[in-house]
């Protein structure tokens, strides 16, 4: 037991500090990717619902391909192709190769994956809004962007939250896949700590506990958001069979 505490202590020779740094990196990427994915998702949902045939087809290809290919493969493709393209463009413009930050690359790669799922979640949520509420906004001369902000987003929230909460948890865990491209998030830090000390069980158990804590905390936060988003709606508990 003493040995375990020593291994996990925050300052060297303990590896606890490394694990926490990895966790912070994981959360940074997860938050960034989730936010980026929401933006893509909102644009994608609007495009699918209201766009022209070409845009709708392009979006259908995007959501189908991204949701069909295993995330690990996508991450490898997007990471290497993405950095390669940026470097080629940079060299063509005469700037030479650029250093791409791991956080930015991670957010970009996971954001594109998240965006595909978010597109479908938000499309469904928008379609669940009673059409009359959108019609009322239109009938009173509300401009489209204001309608999005004042009516569509708040009205769809309660339908979108459960799906988005799932998506967020997937984002936190997908950061672990970034270990394959050498990004020092929680899983990679854990592997390094475990390999250096041969205490595999201890460190992976600790990492698991950290992921679990993130999930528990996220559940609390999303429960609050959902309660807020459902304001004005009668409780479903009263209508149970």
């Amino acid at each position: 037991m003493e040995q375990v505490i020593e291994l996990l202590s925050l300052s060297p020779p303990g590896w606890g500090g490394n694990l926490l740094r990895g966790l912070v990196h994981s959360l940074e990427i997860a938050l960034g990717a989730f936010g980026f994915g929401l933006l893509i998702g909102l644009g994608g949902a609007y495009g699918k619902l209201y766009g022209g045939p070409v845009l709708r087809d392009l979006l259908a290809v995007y959501t189908t391909v991204v949701r069909a290919v295993p995330e690990l493969v996508l991450i490898l493709i997007l990471y290497y192709v993405g950095t390669d393209l940026i470097n080629k463009a940079s060299e063509a413009m005469g700037y030479g190769r650029v250093e791409i930050s791991g956080v930015a690359a991670g957010i970009w790669v996971l954001g594109i994956v998240q965006g595909a799922y978010a597109t479908e979640i938000l499309r469904g949520a928008i379609k669940a809004i009673p059409i009359g509420q959108l019609e009322a906004a239109r009938a009173f001369g509300m401009p489209p962007l204001k309608m999005l902000r004042r009516v569509t987003i708040p009205a769809m929230m309660s339908f979108a939250i459960p799906g988005l909460a799932n998506l967020w948890l997937i984002a936190t865990k997908d950061t672990a896949l970034l270990a394959v491209v050498g990004f020092n998030e929680l899983t990679l830090e854990t592997r390094q700590a475990a390999a250096s000390t041969r205490a595999y069980f201890t460190f992976f158990l600790a990492a698991g506990a950290l992921y679990l804590m993130v999930t528990l905390l996220s559940g609390r936060i999303f429960a609050r958001i959902e309660k807020w988003a459902r304001k004005g709606q009668p409780s479903h508990r009263r209508a149970k069979a």
């Binding site: 009359g132 509420q133 009938a139 009173f140 001369g141 509300m142 401009p143 009205a155 929230m157």
Partner: peptide, 26 residues
């Protein structure tokens, strides 16, 4: 013209069969 139709709509008070109040607002 989007501007024109929005301006005109904002002067026409519509009342719907299904009320269509915004349920997330008091």
């Amino acid at each position: 013209s989007r501007k024109q139709i929005e301006r005109i709509r904002s002067r026409l008070g519509m009342v719907f069969q299904a009320f269509n109040l915004w349920t997330h607002r008091t």
